[in-house]
């Protein structure tokens, strides 16, 4: 009997060792319970590494959970970038946007988002060589941003101004910055009786219609979003094009 006990004990111990790498906490510096799951969703089962050169800036606290500024700056990377996927681990809808820098842009994007609770914010960069590099930041919040009705729902203003774009070009040190605001409710679909209604696609195009930047947007992008992009040829003519999930298209020369 004793013998069997000892054997059982050893088998259990051995099992522990075998299983523990799988159970062991991931290499996520923020130890998020969602990391492994979401990494698999957005990156697939491929190698990756965390990289401090990708700077994800968020405020220390989400004072207004419906308008939290998030800046992703990957200009510190020397590698060429295929795309950047940005998400919030603990949001009910995690994906925020995917950004494709195609030409004449610096990979530095600012916009504002809705958050439902304190959460890690991730920016996963896929380089042209196929490496995944992850920038990350922790955002503290009291919550409620995704399930609050948009301001638009309390006022008919948006109905006559949907898709109106205000834009401005700023001269920064050695580049230009576009900032633009689009009137759109960006409803998440998580509020009772308000269906989802949000901008899904964005392109910054040159005079020939070729895109400098493409973006796929998701519901957590804030109402009446303000985007900012940095371009390396600020003197060129550009246009902005957007489409929402109802098929409305908006286009404006900048």
């Amino acid at each position: 009997m004793r013998f069997i006990n000892v054997i059982l004990c050893r088998v259990t111990l051995l099992l522990c060792f075998v299983v523990s790498p799988a159970l062991h906490a991931s290499d996520d510096p923020l130890q998020s319970p969602m990391w492994d799951y979401l990494r698999n969703v957005f990156l697939g089962d491929t190698p990756y590494q965390f990289d401090d050169r990708i700077v994800v800036s968020v405020p220390p606290f989400a004072e207004d959970p419906t308008q939290v500024p998030v800046t992703v700056d990957a200009t510190g990377l020397s590698e060429k970038i295929e795309k950047i996927v940005v998400w919030a681990d603990l949001n009910p809808i995690q994906h925020i946007y995917t950004y494709y820098p195609l030409k004449d842009v610096k990979p530095n994007v600012s916009l504002r988002i809705k958050v439902q609770q304190a959460t890690p914010i991730r920016a996963a960069v896929l380089t042209k060589k196929g490496h995944w590099l992850i920038g990350t930041s922790y955002l503290d919040a009291a919550g409620g941003g995704c399930t609050t009705p948009s301001v638009a729902n309390a006022s008919p203003y948006w109905e006559s101004h949907l898709g109106e774009i205000s834009a401005k070009k700023f001269q920064r040190e050695a580049f230009g910055r576009y900032k633009f605001k689009v009137v759109h409710p960006m409803d998440t679909g998580l509020v009772d009786a308000i269906p989802e209604f949000y901008l899904q696609q964005l392109e910054l195009r040159d005079a020939q219609g070729d895109a400098l930047v493409k973006m796929d947007l998701s519901q957590p992008v804030s109402e009446n979003p303000v985007f900012s992009f940095d371009v390396t040829q600020p003197s060129a003519q550009h246009r902005l094009w957007l489409r929402d999930n109802n098929g409305n298209e908006f286009e404006q020369p900048l």
């Binding site: 800036s57 968020v58 405020p59 500024p69 998030v70 600012s110 700023f170 910055r177 900032k179 900012s228």
Partner: peptide, 11 residues
């Protein structure tokens, strides 16, 4: 007027 983003202003 310089086009700073909110996070840049906070810093």
């Amino acid at each position: 007027s310089q086009g700073l983003s909110m996070n840049e202003v906070m810093a």
